[in-house]
């Protein structure tokens, strides 16, 4: 096949090749271009719920994780309009939950917080909901802090698609949507989830956390203290050591 026959999209003015069936997000990731995202992870099926991955495709705003790449499509992921919309989405995620960054173990490693910094978010713009959400500490090794959960469904999909467990699910509707343990008691300890599960290593925020991993880095040495998310992408702490990011950047 000659170069001319490989289909390309134009992303931020540059040609990006893709294979048939790939989403814009997948094509961008393979080309090393970071499009901000929260509910997407290359190891599980796309969900299209957080909308943080919005881009302009031929002038229309679309979620890049669920929009197929099409030959010749003109895509913009970092124009002012998209960044402003994205900032509003991040602000909504902040006011919907209870995010006390100062004492959160994932502060400095949290993708939501990192995007807020990257988008120069200086306030929450919207009024806080201050929802009343229960924390689940019943599991001996794992804690689920629903205050910080953004209902991205990543852990749900990871549990079902990679761990083959379906330990978790999203329940409720609208503002009442919440992550629940898929078992009669509704408690994490009875859900079958375990520390080594992929579901435990995919949360973009500090909602699903191991109990024994307390603040491993001082301020200044955490992932996003060192480089913005636009440079290093969505990195989990276990894929990061020193200044090095191990494994593929997503």
């Amino acid at each position: 096949m000659s170069d001319q026959t490989i289909p390309c999209i134009e992303l931020n003015g540059k040609p990006i090749p893709f294979q048939a069936g790939e989403s814009i997000m997948q094509a961008a990731t393979q080309a090393g271009v970071y499009i901000p995202h929260l509910c997407h992870h290359p190891d599980v099926s796309p969900h299209g719920s957080c909308r943080v991955c919005i881009v302009k495709v031929n002038g229309r705003v679309k979620a890049s994780c669920i929009t197929p790449a099409e030959e010749g499509a003109v895509v913009e992921s970092e124009c002012d309009e998209i960044r402003q919309l994205r900032k509003r989405l991040i602000q909504m995620l902040f006011v919907e939950g209870n995010h006390f960054c100062p004492s959160c173990e994932m502060s400095g490693q949290c993708q939501l917080q990192a995007l807020a910094y990257d988008l120069n978010m200086l306030d929450t713009h919207f009024d806080h909901f201050y929802p009343n959400r229960a924390i689940d500490c019943t599991h001996p090794d794992i804690i689920l802090d629903r205050d910080r959960c953004i209902n991205c469904d990543l852990c749900v999909r990871a549990s079902a698609q990679i761990d083959n467990k379906q330990a978790l699910s999203l329940g409720g509707r609208g503002q009442q949507t919440h992550l629940q343990a898929n078992c009669e008691s509704g408690l994490l300890k009875d859900s079958g989830i375990e520390s080594q599960d992929k579901a435990m290593h995919i949360c973009p925020v500090g909602a699903l956390l191991p109990k024994n991993n307390h603040y491993p880095q001082i301020t200044g040495e955490r992932i996003y203290d060192k480089a913005p998310i636009s440079e290093v992408g969505n990195v989990r702490p276990e894929n990061h050591q020193g200044d090095q990011t191990k494994g593929p950047i997503s």
């Binding site: 001082i218 301020t219 040495e221």
Partner: peptide, 10 residues
């Protein structure tokens, strides 16, 4: 020691 002058982690 803690990474910040105020409110670090130690």
């Amino acid at each position: 020691i803690s990474g910040k002058k105020v409110h670090g982690i130690a």
